[in-house]
Amino acid sequence: MSAAPRPDPYAPRGLWRGLESGAAILLAAMWAAPLVYAVWAAIHPAEFTTRFVLSAPLTLDNFARAWAAAPFARYFLNTFVLVTLILICQLCLGTLAAYALARRPFFGRDVAFALILVQLMVMPDALIVENYRTLAAVNLVDTIPAIALPYVASAFGIFLLRQAFKQVPRELDEAARVEGAGPLQILLKVYVPLARPTYIAYGLVSVSYHWNNFLWPLIVTNSVEARPLTVGLAVFSSTDQGVDWAVICAATLMTSGPLLVAFLLFQRQFVQSFMRAGLK
């Protein structure tokens, strides 16, 4: 991306480099162990779950049994609908709000921003009791929108997009205005395209967060029709399987599979997105 990196005078050399690499790799091995083990258990017959011999036969039987034992296809569909719904709503609401906060000076803007930032501290997880009460009152419990609703306005997303919009040169905004573009047109034609990296970064963070979210979906769903993968997996591994670790590992890998494969393919993109989301 940039020119050749300048030599770092503090880059470790010789023995020190070996020691540092060794420590880092040891830690990496510990960090990778659960996943590596899950793969081992999932692709070998149950009798090799705790016997690590290279001659163990490979099998996909565990995946087939997990798939047959619970309505995973439905869970996948639910999760897919859920993360898509949340992402679309978050991006629409966030774009409008961030635009107002970044580039439209108006009465009460700072108060509004402060009220939005409250959500960074008081996350929806802390408000499960009252949010359940609200959704029960409007008869939405056990639906996919019920899982999504507390998250559709995201303070984090609004904050990120506001930062991105603030970096758009004002000259572009003014030029578009001179050309006769209205506020919404300016937003869609100037701001949104220029904030693309932020949209991608936030999208990846949001999708992986809601793919993995568990507590609120657990509370607000109680049927196969609404349950996302995480809750489905929890139900599956606590009741149906007893102690068949090979099948549980297969189900575990299956539920994290799409995200994991996407991560392995677009590792750079993922890491950079999370970095971008973390930088103020």
Partner: peptide, 30 residues
């Protein structure tokens, strides 16, 4: 730093972040 196997090491550190806690809890449980 420019340690040996940097990309793989970084991937190993970061992978838990994108795995569902509920799923990895099963593995840790074992």
């Amino acid at each position: 730093d420019r340690i040996v196997g940097r990309t793989a090491v970084r991937m190993a550190y970061f992978t838990p972040t994108i795995l569902p806690m509920i799923a990895v809890a099963n593995i840790w449980m074992f």
